[in-house]
């Protein structure tokens, strides 16, 4: 028995020694993985709190409307210009290829299906990840480092409800609206592109464009934009609300909000495409 204890303790000592000799590279990987999972857990807690605070009264309706104005209305010019150029360029680039097969008449329907199903929602979400994500991330981080969020808390206001819930809900509501706006403007851009080298009437173009669009094109693509908005809002708010290290932290929060939100847009898109493909 005594021998066994001695053997066990020597094994323990050897194990501890070998553990301390783990190469630095492995340790770095371990820290990275640990930080990753800690971050995932924190985001999950943050998301859970968001849903809890969203459904429980009081509701900050005025602040929500204000945020809808800033996130939605103020993004219209950027989304509109991008949509118009996207439709125009897409049409100009696609026309020669379709012309080779003598399928130019398919151009309006091809453009409309591509834009409504995929390009419109994803491009709008990426623009919003850049504009809204960086805006919210920087604003909240700046509020955090200048103690404005603490000031709100000590005045007896729930800053999570006032700042986070309103921004995330506004982003979730406004993303589908902006996507529809982007889709419509893209179609006008495409119409302009068709008429650069041809003469197609407004009625004929849009009749062709809408002829091949059906319920399964519009509804799933709009449904996923709610999730895009939710993800952009949540990530930007999380990064801003948890910012540290003064002004350096503000820059980091804005930057990582855009990067992570853009990545999440693609991840959600892949999942959404897999789900919607089940219905085709």
């Amino acid at each position: 028995m005594k021998n066994l204890v001695t053997q066990l303790s020597s094994i323990e000592i050897k194990a501890k020694e070998s553990l301390t000799k783990i190469p630095l590279k492995l340790e770095v990987h371990y820290n990275f993985i640990q930080n990753f999972f800690t971050d995932v857990a924190r985001v999950a807690i943050f998301t859970g709190r968001f849903f809890k605070e969203t459904i429980s009264p009081p509701y900050e309706v005025n602040e929500l409307l204000k945020q809808c104005y800033f996130i939605g209305y103020k993004s219209l010019p950027l989304v509109g210009i991008t949509g118009f150029i996207m439709g125009l360029v897409f049409t100009i680039q696609s026309r020669p290829t379709l012309a080779e097969f003598g399928a130019e008449s398919w151009l309006p329907s091809m453009i409309s299906v591509s834009i409504v199903r995929e390009i419109g929602p994803v491009i709008t979400a990426l623009i919003c990840a850049g504009k809204i994500g960086s805006g919210i991330g920087a604003e909240l981080a700046s509020m955090k480092v200048t103690e404005q969020i603490d000031a709100m808390e000590v005045s007896g206001t729930n800053p999570f409800k006032y700042i986070i819930v309103t921004r995330v809900v506004a982003a979730t509501i406004m993303l589908p609206v902006l996507t529809v706006f982007n889709d419509v403007i893209s179609m006008f851009g495409s119409f302009a592109g068709v008429n650069l080298k041809g003469d197609v009437s407004f009625y004929l173009y849009f009749a062709q464009a809408f002829a091949h669009l059906d319920f399964l094109d519009v509804v799933p693509s709009l449904a996923k934009t709610f999730f895009f908005g939710l993800a952009i809002g949540l990530i930007a708010c999380y990064k801003g609300y948890n910012a540290t290290n003064g002004t350096e932290g503000v820059g980091k929060a804005a930057n990582s909000s855009v990067v992570v939100a853009s990545l999440m847009v693609f991840v959600i898109d892949i999942i959404a495409v897999q789900i919607t493909s089940l219905f085709y």
């Binding site: 200048t146 709100m152 007896g156």
Partner: peptide, 22 residues
């Protein structure tokens, strides 16, 4: 949290930076 908010209303806190809402 409700009671904490109630007591916070009886305490004023002047932050170093003023912490005004920009």
């Amino acid at each position: 949290s409700k009671e904490l908010n109630a007591i916070r209303k009886k305490i004023g806190f002047l932050f170093q930076s003023g912490a005004l809402y920009d």
